[in-house]
Amino acid sequence: MTRVLVVDDQFLIRAGLVGLLDAASGFEAVGEAGDGRQAVRLAAKTRPDVILMDIRMPDMNGIEATERILAEAVAPAPRVLVLTTFDLDEYVYGALRAGASGFLLKDSGPERLLAAVAAVAGGDALFAPSVTRRLVEAFAHQASSEPGAQPPPDLDVLTTREVEVLELVARGLSNPEIADRLSISEATVKTHLNRTMTKLDLNSRAQAVVVAYETGLVTPGR
């Protein structure tokens, strides 16, 4: 059973998502929050597997809420799936940078939403990697050059193979595709990726994609 916390400042959207999850086999809505502060409190209380997180909310937005939840979470940390109206939204980029596992457009159908929640809960692949990659390309250079921006981590701590895996993840390849490309097992790919995320202090595959672009390992258009 995948336990889901729903966060959105619009009551009808929250109610619709909760109803969809409770009616579907294998999912359970464990709570709903109307703003980021309430989301932080409920995430600590209910310890969901996945959080459906709206971005633009009053008081505390979804980016700050994502940062707080992941920083304070007791392992295993929940996976955050961002809900947004636009596929090229700088706020979504900020959420991915903060550690969200992926994002989904609000006009997606019920089957796609449930599939996205299941994919994020499984942690095997970033949902819609091509769209996420396009989003990162659009905002990575801009965000990293802003005054006060945190510098990207140093990739020198990675082995050559870990760098290769990170680059292919950023290019949107799945674990089986990376295994085939590098002639290694899928389990070995997961090991390299997990070690990379530990060394770079990353929370999600999406965050790894962001780092690959911000460090210049992968550049837009290549």
Rank of each mutant, 00 (worst) to 15 (best):
residue 154 D to I: 06
residue 99 G to I: 12
residue 165 V to W: 07
residue 53 M to H: 09
residue 181 R to H: 14
residue 170 A to Q: 04
residue 31 G to R: 01
residue 190 K to N: 11
residue 100 A to N: 08
residue 135 L to A: 07
residue 23 A to H: 01
residue 132 T to M: 02
residue 178 I to W: 00
residue 215 T to E: 07
residue 82 V to I: 13
residue 21 L to T: 05
residue 106 K to H: 01
residue 20 L to Y: 04
residue 44 A to G: 14
residue 61 N to V: 13
residue 92 V to A: 14
residue 130 S to H: 00
residue 16 G to S: 13
residue 146 E to C: 01
residue 130 S to D: 12
residue 216 G to Q: 07
residue 191 T to P: 10
residue 128 A to Y: 00
residue 160 T to M: 07
residue 177 E to I: 00
residue 154 D to M: 03
residue 3 R to Y: 08
residue 19 G to S: 11
residue 187 A to S: 10
residue 200 L to E: 15
residue 40 V to N: 08
residue 28 E to L: 12
residue 169 V to L: 09
residue 28 E to V: 09
residue 32 E to K: 03
residue 102 G to D: 14
residue 2 T to N: 11
residue 67 E to I: 03
residue 109 G to W: 00
residue 173 L to R: 01
residue 79 R to S: 15
residue 4 V to T: 10
residue 102 G to Y: 03
residue 4 V to F: 06
residue 41 R to G: 12
residue 157 V to L: 07
residue 8 D to P: 03
residue 178 I to N: 09
residue 168 L to P: 10
residue 183 S to C: 08
residue 109 G to K: 05
residue 184 I to C: 12
residue 88 L to Y: 06
residue 222 R to D: 15
residue 134 R to N: 06
residue 149 A to R: 01
residue 196 T to G: 11
residue 191 T to N: 14
residue 209 V to Y: 01
residue 51 I to N: 06
residue 216 G to D: 05
residue 40 V to L: 08
residue 163 V to C: 12
residue 200 L to Y: 02
residue 161 R to S: 15
residue 91 Y to C: 13
residue 109 G to I: 03
residue 157 V to Y: 02
residue 62 G to V: 15
residue 131 V to L: 05
residue 202 L to F: 07
residue 99 G to S: 13
residue 183 S to H: 03
residue 21 L to N: 11
residue 155 L to V: 04
residue 147 P to H: 04
residue 37 R to E: 15
residue 137 E to C: 03
residue 125 A to R: 02
residue 187 A to L: 09
residue 115 A to V: 04
residue 127 F to R: 04
residue 49 D to K: 06
residue 145 S to G: 04
residue 187 A to E: 13
residue 113 L to W: 01
residue 120 V to L: 02
residue 3 R to F: 12
residue 8 D to G: 08
residue 174 S to W: 02
